[in-house]
Design a protein around this nucleic acid. Sequence first.
DNA 1: GCCATATGGAAAG
DNA 2: TTTCCCTATGGCA
Length: 243
Amino acid sequence: MPEGHTLHRLAEELHPLIGRRFAASSPQGRFAAGADILDGRRLAAVEAVGKHLLFDFDGVVLHVHLGMAGSMFPSDPSGAPRSGVRLRLVDEKEEVAWNLAAPTRCELWSGDERRALFDRLGPDPLRGDDPGPAFERIARSDRTIGELLLDQAVIAGIGNVFRAEVLHRCGVHPSRPGRSLTQAELTCLWETAITRMRRAVRAGRIDGRSVYQQETCRRCGGPVTSWALGARTAYACAACQPR
DNA sequence: GCCATATGGAAAG
DNA sequence: TTTCCCTATGGCA
């Protein structure tokens, strides 16, 4: 299941296909009208921002969000399409078929909607953005840092796994109010997010989990506690992350 | 087959 | 803050 690294990896994998035209179809049927519009168009750009994937097909924007269950994967274009695939894109050389399954969003956008997305997202650690706006927002917030890290308007691309791991790495308890964090802690969170998310882009998965869904802390061996925080389960080591 | 759960997000109140 | 939507998966009956 995807956090920001998944989308950035997909954008990298799709990048070599820029310039080609695509045959678009919706084997599942729920995106038939959209696929008709995309069919035969040339891919001009593809990029990830936060957990969103944006395509430019001759000026038409395709917006994809995988949600919790979605996936996007290549397959042999000569093989039969899988029935559950919402959108299938086959390049004009018929070298590859890209399949989108179970997305929470798959829709065509105007330029205005695309701009609105960028306006409402915070800086993305994987895009080399300036973290300043996120730091300022956290520094004057009474909300917990655990909630703030999951808020895509504060920082874009972090999900529940990176939240747990980044906070643990920096020794910050998830329940601390944003305004209690020092500048050094904020910098640590941002730099650690960059490091861990880049590594996950390369690996294609998040590995080296120290507290997320762990019984004991992988660093000190102490017990890991978990509880609901910001509509998701938070994890922390009491010894490594004092309140 | 049913239900709870999940690495997500938005609308409603 | 609650409710809803989304779809896959795993445990259970």
